[in-house]
């Protein structure tokens, strides 16, 4: 099947509800950094924005707006030790197996096999959507995340939006 046109569908939905048009982020270009070393020697971290929290942390608020919360997720967290609170996508499958959206077991396996160098000490979960404060993200939250990744010598970062 053809890819779903999410933006057009959402524009139509917002209009039908009498909301002002959503101000989509549209970028013309992107920077590109090369990997500094082969994948087999890289330390990799991941990010999910799917409302995923560890069971020993507070759940995400599915109705939140402008929630810039970002949880560090210890790399050894077991796959069954997560809760998902997000009303904007169907996470029934991921509720059963977190690896559907956040393949923490698969990344550990690739590290054990030497396909990647190692899993970084922490992954991240947050930026779960309905964020309308782009300046705060660009000037504060994203640089803070980049700083944490550099502090833990992360070589590459896999982002999984939801």
């Amino acid at each position: 099947m053809e890819p779903i046109q999410y933006a057009a569908r959402l524009n139509e939905f917002y209009r039908s509800q009498g909301f002002p048009p959503y101000n989509w982020t549209i970028n013309e270009g992107a920077p590109l950094m090369r990997l500094a070393k082969p994948l087999g020697r890289c330390r990799i971290a991941m990010l999910t924005s799917g409302g995923v929290s560890r069971k020993d942390a507070a759940p995400f608020n599915p109705q939140a707006r402008n929630d810039l919360r970002l949880d560090p997720i210890d790399r050894e967290t077991p796959a069954h030790f997560f809760a998902i609170n997000d009303d904007y996508y169907n996470h029934a499958d991921a509720d059963r197996d977190i690896n559907c959206i956040f393949p923490i077991d698969r990344l550990r396996e690739l590290a054990a096999e030497g396909v990647i160098g190692e899993v970084a000490p922490h992954h991240y979960s947050g930026f779960m959507g309905r964020i309308y404060v782009r300046t705060a993200v660009m000037n504060e939250a994203a640089p803070a995340l980049a700083r944490k990744l550099r502090e833990e010598s992360v070589d590459a970062f896999v982002l999984v939006p939801a």
């Binding site: 920077p31 640089p143 995340l145 980049a146 990744l149 550099r150 590459a156 970062f157």
Partner: peptide
Amino acid sequence: MVEASGIP
């Protein structure tokens, strides 16, 4: 932002 900070 992360990429611009040097991390692919």
